[in-house]
Design a protein around this nucleic acid. Structure first.
Lengths: 141, 141
DNA sequence: GATCACACGTTAGCCAGCTAATGATACGGT
DNA sequence: ACCGTATCATTAGCTGGCTAACGTGTGATC
């Protein structure tokens, strides 16, 4: 049957990226998926699970459960919202706040490693190609 | 902090691809991850979970559990290995065998949709770039 | 021929996505 | 003032990846 080089290459690369990301963040006691939540909170602390889910384009339960684990890991804590008892504010702990620079570095290092040997032009082209695929498949934003 | 356009674009695209693949295959009662196992079995029926895991670069338990679900879904059945009682042969049912062309078409259609608007040259370039990343991160094969 | 190490599949349990169902609170209309 | 709807978070339960632990069967060695 026809080989589908694109999908083969894409999924293999995705797997390699996921593994590398997991390895990079695990060193600092953070699971790969939690990094995105942290990034949002570094930008604006005290957001609610629903806000984070919307920003990250995740389902809300994914965020609340991750928050539970991150709370157990001492990365954040839940606080009551002052004006609306339905809402929960996720607030970074000292430890969660302190990891910002470390994890940013880790992320940039991963990108560097992944794109090693590519020219700036090739990198830009890659990003454009990825974005084309994303919009072709109806990706939001 | 520095934006990391590559990772943003990559993960967004990965998500869009995963969603699109899930939607495409679910129409035929197949979950996205099971497609790869089916492809292996179409090529050579009766392989063992361990063989499939090695080919697909998955952990063996991932395959055995998927096989259990696929068995329940009527896509394959377990058969005893004639010469070695430790081994299990995963054999396609009529239904599993019959889905080959349909799912291949679905996969190609997904690729077409994803790469819509890209020239052959751009497609080849994309594949090369993805493979570079894969090998940069130490991807096997 | 018995025993012991190795190979294989399965089970248990973790994380991370998802949807559907629950429960609590806010708010608008009456 | 009350009642119903809408909006949150959470829980339950699915798939799909993983590692570690388990049990069984092969095969080699003695």
């Amino acid at each position: 049957m026809q080989r589908d080089e694109f999908q083969s290459a894409f999924w293999a690369t995705k797997k390699a990226m996921a593994e590398a990301a997991e390895a990079a963040f695990n060193q600092h006691g953070v699971r790969a998926g939690q990094q995105f939540i942290l990034e949002c909170l570094w930008e604006a602390d005290g957001q609610t699970p629903g806000e984070l889910a919307k920003r990250l384009e995740l389902a809300t339960p994914t965020v609340t459960r991750a928050a539970t684990r991150m709370e157990a890991a001492g990365l954040l804590r839940r606080e009551a919202h002052p004006h609306d008892a339905r809402l929960v504010r996720l607030c970074l702990t000292e430890r969660g706040r302190h990891l910002e620079k470390t994890l940013e570095q880790e992320r940039l290092r991963l990108t560097d490693r992944a794109l090693n040997g590519l020219s700036n032009e090739q990198r830009e082209q890659l990003i454009r190609l990825l974005e084309t695929i994303h919009t072709n498949l109806g990706g939001r934003k």
